[in-house]
Amino acid sequence: MRAAVLVFPGSNCDRDLAVAFQRAGFDTHMVWHKDTELPERLDVVGVPGGFSYGDYLRCGAIAAQSPIMRAVAGFAARGGHVLGICNGFQVLCETRLLPGVLMRNAGLKFTCKMQALTVETTDSPFTSAYKPGQEIVIPVAHHDGNYQIDADGLARLQGEDRIAFAYEGNPNGSVAHIAGVLSENRRVLGLMPHPERVVDEAHGGTDGAPLFASLAEALVSA
């Protein structure tokens, strides 16, 4: 299994995501933002957290215009798996690989803490190793995680069972407590919480590990 992790200037969870992929058995490649092609025979692209291009215009907006994201869009269109975490989720929304937008937290402050979530669907290559409705704890660390989408879009996400994770409580004001959403073909996941930060016992929790295990399982059996 081969994973690529994108590196934008300002990415700072790229290594963490690569480590999590490796722990789950992936052969992992770092891919520079100025590259125009992804490695061959790739199974999944990880778009990591951080502050791509300093988040100076709008989070993820400049990264969405980078050469490598055109290649990622093509990869997704061909049915490739894409995982966007935190800033990566923002980038995926800006590239329209996922619907909705991420706005400034309702409390206006950056928020970093352990956060309880519920697994809203296990019907995806990212969540099949969880139990339906399972409560898990995964940290959040963001300033702009307030997920918003119009009423029709929300109804569609709900109707198509594409909300992957929801917050218990609401750390940032997201509509319907949404923490992560899936694409129509369920192969693109974006989420604000950081599963790569809870994959080994030393992290004080391992609730992120099943996400990577689900993916490995799905790709092996695919």
Binding site: N12, D16, V19, A20, G49, C112, P139, A202
Partner: peptide, 12 residues
């Protein structure tokens, strides 16, 4: 909580 105290995924 306004500081990312977990980035680098090595905070014990």
């Amino acid at each position: 909580q306004q500081y990312d105290h977990m980035v680098m995924a090595d905070t014990v």
